[in-house]
Structure formats: structure tokens, C-alpha cells
Amino acid sequence: MTMPYYASAEQVMRDRSEYARKGISRGRSVAVLTYADGVLFIAENPSSTLHKVGEIYDRIGFAAVGRYSEFESLRVAGVRLADVRGYSYNRRDVTGRVIANAYAQTLGAIFTEQMKPYEVELCVAEVGDSSESDQLYRLTFDGSVVDEPDFVVMGGQAEAVTARLREDFRAGLPLSEALMVGVRALSASSPAMPGNGSGDGLLPAAQLEVAVLDRRRPKRAFRRVVGAALGSLLGDGGGPAPEAATHAHAPSAPQPGTPAGLGDPAAPDTAGGAVDGPADAGES
């Protein structure tokens, strides 16, 4: 193997940081805020299926910006770690700190050992029994981890959104007010808004992905705020948002006596069936 040029370690790290930062700054922003009953995630995300915010475990949530394929594989790894730990010990033994540490070590190792660093920034949030015990961990592409109070902003316009949130944010806001504070801050510097958000308009519900970790919910605290619930929290400023697709399967009917998948060839769960069957004959 030849080493045609020498590059100092400092130079290599600087180049990688710059590369990762550039990648992250192209994306839209995500804000994670604490509120009276837990933690609120607000992502500027026009897609209703490619999520930036997700559930890791009972009291733990995840938000990310950057390259989708990279943070998605990290999210899946987090869910796996949480489920393996919860299954082999007890559900109580899964903590946000464990997940955040695993992310920090993984991101750190990738940053130093691989040519291309991950272009992602993550937030791992955990709700406790009271607002004092809520935790927000911010993880950057180089594996550094910071425990933040109040809120975390990540993504392209992070600085502008953070500045806006510093003015408006107060601890212990009710959900609707915390959401308005967050959406206003995101809208003010969103490239999707007319005049780069210099106007007073708010991002419509269809451009937002909102979820909460609500400490009042038993066991699984994570809940997506979608559809009519989001519309009413936003004061219906943004028109109807898409409903969540939590159970979108082809309709099924009970078929006692017929093993699943061995029934009518036209049924959605039976393999095969005619490509040009008689059912198609009358159409087209």
C-alpha cells in the first residue's frame, strides 16, 4: 500500500468535522423541548413515513438530523440494545444513559476509524417521574455527548432556532404553549417558509413531525401527535395533517378451517394467484 501524501491527524480530523458539519447543515432542523408533562419533539419533516423522531423504549425517545440511512440504522441499534437489555434483565434496567453512551462510543469509533464520518446529530431523551429527572442528551457526529437542560436544537438552522428559543422558552410550559414556542422558533428560520421565515407565518401541520414522551402515560410514554390532535394544538393554523398509518394493511376476514395463506388465490395473504385472472377481464 502506498501513502502518497502525508496528512497530520489534526488536519484529518478537521476535514472530517467539516465534512460532517456540511452534511448536517443541509438538513432541516429538529427541536427537542422539555414541557410540563415530559419531553416534546418537533421536527420539520414533510414526509409522514420517513421519521426523524422515534421511540426507543418505555421512557426513552430519539430524534435525529442528517443523513436518513445513517441515523435510521443508529435508531434501530438503539431499539435493539434497549430490547435486549430489557429482555435479559428487566424493563427498569434500560436507561437513557446506557443508550446515549452506546451512541457516543459508536459515533466516536466511526469518526476516528472510518474514512467518512456519520453526518448525523442525535438527541436521546428520557422522561422521569418529575420534570427534574427528565434528561436530554445531545450527541454529535464525533461522539461527544452533552447533557442539556431545557432544550436541544439540531440541524441546518440550529443556531438561529436556539437563539429564538432562548428568548421564548420557559421551563414547565403546558404542551400547547411549548409546541407553539417550538414551532415559532423553527418557522422563523425555516428555508421552507416564504422569505426564509422572516415573516410571521407558521409551518403548516403537514410540514411537521411532532411527538411527545408523556410521563403521565403508563409504561410506553412515547406518542406521536398527528392528524386532528396536532391541528387543534396548532390552533388549526396549518390545515389538515395526514393521519398516522399505524395499521395500514389490506383488509382481512376470518377464515376458520383455512390455514392462513392457503385460501382463495385472490386473497391478499395467499401466494401466487393469476396475473391476468378472470377478475381483470372486464376492466381496462
Binding site: S73, L74, Q105
Partner: peptide, 23 residues
């Protein structure tokens, strides 16, 4: 038990493999 902890470099490779949604 080792696999339910993370190694020194974070997640073991199997965790980062995107394929599969079955526990």
C-alpha cells in the same frame, strides 16, 4: 451477556445491520 452490553467501540456490528425487524 456480553452482547447485551456495548463494546469499547459502541454497538457490536450485528446491532448496526439494518436488515430485519424481528427481535
Amino acid at each position: 451477556l456480553t452482547q447485551s452490553h456495548t463494546g469499547r467501540s459502541g454497538f457490536p456490528p450485528a446491532y448496526l445491520d439494518r436488515v430485519g425487524s424481528s427481535f
